[in-house]
């Protein structure tokens, strides 16, 4: 027994980063999720820009309509690509290997980070284009960026958990938005309201309630899904 050298298990942080690295590398080889997300976002942006545009709505309606449209673009783009992190593992039969090689906490954190990276890429692509196409003017940039950040963390956490569930169910593509929408309605409602405030008010304090709500949601949902993930992943 003593001849066997003890295998040191890597810590949670190291193994999460390993899962993230694996996901980013395999995504880089095919670029399926990235291209699905970006093409979808681009198509919706063109449609919205053409149909609504900056000129077709009166000036006072713009903050409301634009903040709703921005989050619709972000939300539905997320729904097209974020389920892939787990659905792909189940379809290619690599889920069992992943279960053996990393603790489920590390898998969850790694996948969450991978989805966040994907979502950040979408935001970097969508937001400037949206601002340009719709001539959407932001009055309070810190508030706008904080809302985008907190909104996408909540979006990524709930979607990653939902993706883990649907990857084991039938009709995965249809079930993903069905399960994700009830979980995501509260932060989306808050994010839309916050974006509207960021477009009209120049003080960050005007959106403080919304930021608190989003922060609380992100904290609660990330913790709850982190704790529940083990049961889902090992099923």
């Amino acid at each position: 027994m003593s001849a066997v050298s003890p295998v040191s298990r890597p810590g949670l942080f190291t193994s999460s980063l390993a899962v993230l690295q694996k996901d980013l590398r395999s995504e880089w080889r095919t670029r399926i999720a990235v291209s699905a997300l970006l093409l979808f976002a681009f198509a919706v942006l063109i449609l919205v820009g053409y149909a609504v545009g900056p000129a077709n709505i009166s000036k006072e309606d713009r903050p409301v309509v634009h903040s709703v449209l921005l989050w619709i673009v972000i939300f539905f783009s997320a729904m097209t690509g974020l389920s892939r992190v787990f659905v792909h593992e189940e379809e290619s039969g690599t889920a069992a290997a992943l279960r053996l090689s990393a603790p489920s906490a590390a898998v969850y954190l790694g996948k969450l980070l991978a989805n966040l990276a994907l979502l950040t890429l979408v935001l970097v692509f969508v937001v400037p284009l949206f601002l340009a196409l719709m001539s959407f003017s932001v009055a309070c940039w810190p508030l706008f960026l904080l809302i985008l950040l907190l909104g996408s963390v909540g979006l990524a956490a709930a979607s990653t958990f939902t993706a883990a569930i649907v990857s084991k169910a039938a009709a995965k593509g249809a079930m993903f938005p069905v399960l994700a929408i009830p979980l995501l309605l509260p932060p989306l409602v808050a994010a839309v309201a916050g974006t509207r405030i960021a477009a009209t008010e120049s003080e960050i304090s005007a959106g403080l309630d919304i930021l608190q709500l989003l922060l609380a949601y992100d904290g609660v949902v990330t913790t709850a899904t982190f704790l529940l993930f083990d049961a889902v992943f090992r099923e």
Binding site: A158, A216, V220, V221
Partner: peptide, 8 residues
Amino acid sequence: AAFVTVPF
């Protein structure tokens, strides 16, 4: 998971 998001 839904139980913790509904109160929001």
